[in-house]
Design a protein around this nucleic acid. Structure first.
Length: 412
DNA sequence: CTCTATCGCAGGAGATCAGA
DNA sequence: TCTGATCTCCTGCGATAGAG
């Protein structure tokens, strides 16, 4: 048997038990076996003892390792196998894939957000968790991506490394789920990411980005209406039909209102405000306590420009961007229950707010102005001097033990 | 291991049975 | 009665789904 030549994945089939293949482990993460561990990713050959017929959407076979499977290292110079291989899916096809839990998927897309921030919160069990959320777009569709905890922090560190924006990301072996009726790609142990990687798919997207209509098409997908830039006088005079619409406005923060609550408690399930009743937080989404509500900015500031003054409520995203901190960070620093003095630091600063016009609370207040975001000029930034910078290694949470070789079968 | 809750299976320990 | 084989119950762990 030792002299037997290698089989290729293309010809593997069930019913025969002594296949011998050369393969590169593209992705390796810790699984659950009681005794045996496998070492770091490298090249192996395997005696495939059983090839199970496996009925599914994408691949014809699944390779199962048994006690009889023999694995040997191969020298890099002995074989030529690509170091990466992706099996990309269109972002528009992911909804169907979100209904299954067997397979992980590879996608590539342009990150839409101009800035990506880590969100820290406590889950319903009081455990601190970290997440980073963004959307990717392939020119035809867009999907939400949520990375969790250490993987989110790894991703956040990676994007700080000075890549060309907009970032083009390949997500390898992401898990597709439906979250609040929206397709969401999240990470599992196997998930990897490659930022501005030197791959034809990335180069293709970047070429598309240079065409004018990519951004236009993307905006069409987002059904974004252009947001008008108005001054304070114009905003105040907006007619009723502008309720629930958004405008942009360049303002200077004149005064931070220290007389009102500067943050509110948010239910971690439905993101509505949680109210304190008898010492416990309750939410409208169901008869349950919210033991660890999130804390979101809800800070009143008086702003001005050359045409007048206006009171604006900074919501969470705008507040985080103003201070570069989360509410809990400010609370940690200022453990007094009084209004934190550090909140005054934005006075006399200039901002371009994206403001939603909302219904006021009472007869004295017909309209309310809520800053949803701060507009950054960072995106898009096609600076040709800034060449895409591929990562030498993918970022992944590699550990030891079992393999998932779903993507390998496409190599040969 | 994302983390947690839950389900289901594998395997160990002890009980039971059959044959010498 | 002893010993080995088989059966049953229980526990712990792996797999999976769901949450944020």
């Amino acid at each position: 048997m030792a002299s037997k030549s290698y089989d290729t994945f293309k010809y593997l089939r069930s019913g025969k038990y002594d296949w011998k293949v050369q393969a590169r482990v593209l992705n390796l993460w810790r699984g659950y076996t009681k005794k045996e561990n496998l070492s770091n990713p490298s090249i192996y050959y395997y005696w495939i003892v059983s090839v199970a017929e496996y009925m599914h959407l994408f691949l014809d076979i699944q390779i199962i390792f048994s006690r009889e499977t023999k694995i040997s290292d191969l020298e890099e110079s002995d074989v030529f196998i690509e170091k990466v291989a992706f099996d990309f899916y269109d972002l528009g096809d992911l909804e169907e894939l979100s209904k299954q839990t067997t397979y992980l998927i590879d996608v590539v897309g342009v990150i839409e957000e101009a800035e990506l921030n880590l969100a820290k919160f406590k889950n319903r069990l009081g455990e601190p968790q970290t997440q980073i959320k963004f959307h990717i777009c392939d020119g035809n569709s867009r999907v939400k991506v949520t990375f969790w905890d250490a993987f989110a922090e790894l991703f956040h560190e990676a994007i700080e490394e000075g890549f060309e924006w907009p970032l083009i990301v390949i997500i390898g072996s992401g898990r597709v789920t439906l979250w609040k009726e929206e397709v969401d790609i999240s990470n599992v142990g196997a998930t990897t990411f490659y930022i501005n990687y030197n791959h034809y798919s990335v180069n293709h997207l970047r070429n598309m980005l240079k065409e004018k209509n990519f951004i236009e098409e993307q905006n069409t997908i987002l059904k974004k209406e252009p947001v008008p830039l108005l001054n304070i006088k114009e905003i105040k005079e907006l007619p009723e039909e502008y309720l629930e619409k958004q405008v942009l406005c360049n303002v200077k923060v004149k005064k931070v209102n220290t007389q009102q609550n500067w943050f509110k408690h948010i239910c971690t399930s439905c993101y509505e405000e949680a109210k304190k009743v008898n010492g416990k937080f309750n939410c409208i989404c169901g008869p349950r306590d919210v033991p660890y509500p999130e804390k979101w900015f809800n800070l009143c500031v008086v702003c001005c420009d050359s045409t007048g003054e206006i009171e604006i409520v900074l919501e969470n995203v705008a507040g985080q961007k103003c201070y570069g901190k989360h509410v809990c960070d400010i609370l940690d620093e200022d453990d007094e229950s009084n209004f934190p003095k550090s909140l005054n630091t934005i006075e006399d600063e200039d901002y371009k707010f994206q403001i939603a016009i909302q219904n006021g609370k009472g007869p004295m207040e017909s309209k309310k102005f809520v800053a949803k975001d701060i507009v950054s000029e960072k995106y898009p930034n096609n600076n040709d001097d800034n060449q895409p910078r591929p990562l030498e290694e993918s970022y992944a949470e590699h550990s030891t033990s079992t393999f998932h070789l779903d993507t390998l079968s496409e190599i040969n």
